[in-house]
């Protein structure tokens, strides 16, 4: 299962990382180098073994349906890159006029 150039370009796109062309071969080599060490896992017999999902067998605690909300010690404007009228502003989506292809829920 070797990582290809296309794989790296694909996962970089998924992760929203712009990779300069010249860094791709190096990353392909590094990921393959690292993943080669993971091959040892394939030989481990895990028949009937459940994967660890969280530690212990506790249930997720439930909180009551009440406030108050956790306060912010400084206003959103103090940390937001761009705000207007209380909204966070981002560059407009290229696809906005067709509603939107990426789901929101």
């Amino acid at each position: 299962m070797a990582v290809t150039r296309e794989d790296v370009v694909h996962i970089a796109a998924l992760a929203r990382l712009a990779l300069p062309e010249e860094r791709v071969p190096e990353l392909v080599a590094q990921l393959n180098g690292i993943l080669a060490h993971m091959d040892v896992l394939r030989k481990v017999d895990t028949t009937g073994v459940t994967g660890t999902a969280g530690i212990g067998d506790a249930s997720t605690p439930l909180r009551p349906d009440t406030g108050p909300q956790i306060p912010l010690a400084r206003p959103r404007e103090a940390f937001a890159p761009q705000m207007r009228d209380g909204f966070f502003l981002v560059p407009r989506l290229a696809t906005h006029e067709t509603a939107d292809e990426e789901e929101t829920a």
Binding site: M1, L41, V44, T46, V49, G51
Partner: peptide
């Protein structure tokens, strides 16, 4: 399955 799921299983071991 090959990586993440397998790794979590080995983690259990």
């Amino acid at each position: 399955d090959a990586y993440y799921k397998k790794a979590q299983e080995v983690r259990t071991l």
